Each structure stands twice: as structure tokens, then as C-alpha cells.
Simulated assay, not measured.
Amino acid sequence: MTAQATLKTNRLVLRPLTFEDAPFIQTFASVRELADAMISIPHPYPNGEAERYISKQLAEFEAGHSVTFVIESKSESVFSGIIEVRDIEREHSQAELSFWLAVEAWGQGYMSEALKPVLHFGFEDLSLNRLYGYHMVRNPASGKVFQKNGFVQEGVLRQRVRKSGVFEDVALWAILHRDWQNSLKIIGKGFHSTS
């Protein structure tokens, strides 16, 4: 892949991940409330896990399998979270969306705002046909973000993941390129990107 774009909305900057983000990831991912809501974040969050995560994501980007954005508040340049387009499948023209916000940033509409330019990036820049995402059924806030942004719930995967020793049901949501195009006619873009 070429250099990763930076995306901007009214309140946010979505920029490439760097090793300088490791202390923020380590701190925020260590918070129990965040880890409890996320399928892939363990608790306790192991020392050095942030650096391992960043190394993996940068390698996945180089291989063309994943693109990771750091979500920052535009006004304060404060690290607020992560949003990934991952498991990019060229054969089937699809990828998974995964995201999290620091607990301090919850309830401000940041994730829904961040998702808009990432959808544009996935469908236009990556030429994908389908973007999908998962969340544990007991975390309905993630489902609301998907629903607000035009995703359709495709089903529930019963006891799909084990979290803290408990098997959890997981909801699957997806949006197709044509659905996204139709929604744009109604709501508009509200963001721009820079290389």
C-alpha cells in the first residue's frame, strides 16, 4: 500500500498509528470497562501489549490486509481511540470494521462521527463492496453506532466468543456499497481526507 491518508471530520482527526501511541493504548486498554466491552481486548492488558499490537498493525498495513486509524480530538490533539479496517479480502471485496474509544470519550458521538469517513475510505479508496463488524450482544452501544450509520444486523452468533471465562453471544452487522451510496444521498458526507 501507499502512504496512509489522514481523515478529518468537524471534531476529529483520524491519522495513521505510530509507536508514539503505545503509552495511550496501554493506558486506555487497561481500563476494565473498556476491556469488558471489547471482544479482542484482554483484561488485565499485558505489559508491552500495545507495542506488539502496533507492530502487528503496521505489518498488516504493509501487507495490504489492514488499515488502522488513531481517533484524535481536533481541538486538543488528544488520543481518543482506534478504528480499524481489517481482514481485507480482495477476492470477496470485503473487510471487518473494529473500533474502540477511551472511556473518557464515551457518549459524545465520536465513534459515529469517525465511522463516516472510514466508510468512505473503505468503499471508495479500498473499493470494497461490504464492510461488517461484530459486538457482544450485551454491548448494545456498538450496535447503535452500526445502526446509525446504515448497517443492517445480519444475525446473532450464539456463544461465539469466550470473555473472562464466559461464552458470549455476538451480533453481526454489515453495510454494502450500494446501501452506503443510497444513505449518502440522504445525509451527505461531512468530512474530508488528506494524504
Rank of each mutant, 00 (worst) to 15 (best):
N47I: 08
A114M: 08
I88R: 08
E154C: 12
K8V: 04
K185H: 15
L184N: 11
M111Q: 03
R11H: 13
K74N: 09
E91F: 15
E89W: 15
R138Y: 15
N47M: 08
V85D: 00
E72G: 02
R160W: 15
R86A: 13
F151L: 02
L176P: 05
L157Y: 02
N10T: 14
G190W: 11
A50R: 03
F167A: 08
E113Q: 10
N129F: 12
Q26D: 07
F121R: 02
G64M: 08
P140N: 11
S142D: 05
W100H: 04
R160M: 09
Q94L: 08
P117K: 05
E33N: 12
V13F: 12
D21Q: 08
G133S: 10
F61K: 07
F123E: 00
L115M: 13
E49M: 14
R32F: 13
T27Y: 14
E76Q: 13
L184S: 07
S183F: 12
Q57V: 02
Y132Q: 02
S80F: 02
G155C: 01
M136F: 10
E20N: 15
W100L: 00
L128I: 06
A174P: 04
H192A: 04
H120G: 10
F146K: 00
I83H: 01
E168W: 02
A37M: 13
K8N: 04
Y45G: 01
L34A: 03
G150W: 05
W106Y: 08
S183N: 11
I88G: 04
H92W: 14
Q181A: 14
V156P: 11
L126A: 06
T2P: 15
E20S: 15
I71N: 03
T27K: 13
S66D: 09
A114N: 05
F121A: 03
S164G: 15
W173A: 07
L58M: 09
L128V: 11
Q94V: 01
W180L: 06
S55L: 13
Q94G: 04
F19W: 03
Q147F: 14
F79T: 04
M136R: 08
V152Q: 10
L17A: 01
L184R: 11
V170S: 02
L14W: 01
I39R: 05
R15A: 01
D179W: 10
K185F: 10
Q153I: 08
G143E: 01
M38W: 06
N10G: 14
S75T: 09
F99S: 02
F61D: 03
E168C: 04
N149E: 00
E51P: 09
V170H: 06
E124V: 14
